[in-house]
């Protein structure tokens, strides 16, 4: 009985050994919004994609919306029905999971918001908008495009900002490390000279 368990364990381990997921120490998830679709992929640092990984899509309060599975390229997509902040979680087990937050601001304005999801009234405006479309002056159109572009760029800018902050801290620590490295070198030279 006991032996049986160990054999099973061994076989499982051997089998798991073939999965790239086990070799990775960390998994990452990247997602973007295109219209009303969330598209993304799950990958390991270094670039390899994670296939057949279940990605849980939940609201920010952890209510499950849907689960999707990545295809052979590690990609997944999901149609959003309402405007809300989503949390995407890819769990490959063994405590390795990746999380990505899609802010409600990134999603198209035309989608109903989470609170008003059930109100049918929301579906009316698009028709009205269509009629207006023709009467847009060039200036209005330019304004609209600029507004929408800046809206799309905002999360990117924020990410970049956070990233720069991180780089700065790494550089500071790296610099201190260099100084101590030079200290070691001086010790080495001094030691050799004294011999």
């Amino acid at each position: 009985m006991r032996l049986n368990f160990y054999v099973k364990l061994l076989i499982t381990l051997l089998f798991l050994n073939w999965l790239p997921a086990v070799h990775a120490h960390k998994v990452k998830l990247f997602a973007t919004v295109i219209g009303d679709k969330i598209e993304g992929y799950v990958y390991f640092p270094g670039g390899e994609r994670a296939q057949s990984v279940t990605v849980k899509i939940t609201f920010i309060d952890n209510r499950l919306v849907e689960t999707v599975t990545t295809n052979e390229h590690g990609e997944f997509q999901f149609h959003v029905k309402c405007r809300a902040t989503y949390r995407l979680i890819a769990d490959i087990g063994e405590g390795h999971f990746a999380e990505y937050i899609i802010d409600s601001n990134e999603l198209s304005d035309s989608l109903p918001t989470l609170a008003t999801e059930k109100q049918p009234a929301v579906s009316a405006p698009p028709a009205a908008m269509n009629q207006e479309n023709q009467s847009f002056s060039q200036q209005q159109l330019i304004d609209l495009i600029e507004k929408s572009v800046s809206k799309q760029l905002k999360p990117l800018r924020e990410q970049l900002e956070a990233y720069q902050e991180k780089i700065f801290i790494h550089d500071v620590l790296g610099g201190v490390g260099y100084i101590f490295g030079v200290m070691g070198l001086l010790f080495y030279i001094a030691k050799r000279r004294s011999h």
């Binding site: 610099g175 201190v176 100084i179 200290m183 001086l186 001094a190 030691k191």
Partner: peptide, 25 residues
């Protein structure tokens, strides 16, 4: 400076050098 640097004082130089490096930031 290096010529006059004592073996025992190397860590002290490194610590103060790091302090200067970080303080300016």
């Amino acid at each position: 400076g290096l010529q006059r640097l004592d073996y025992e004082r190397i860590p002290q130089v490194a610590v103060l050098s790091s302090a200067f490096f970080v303080a300016s930031l």
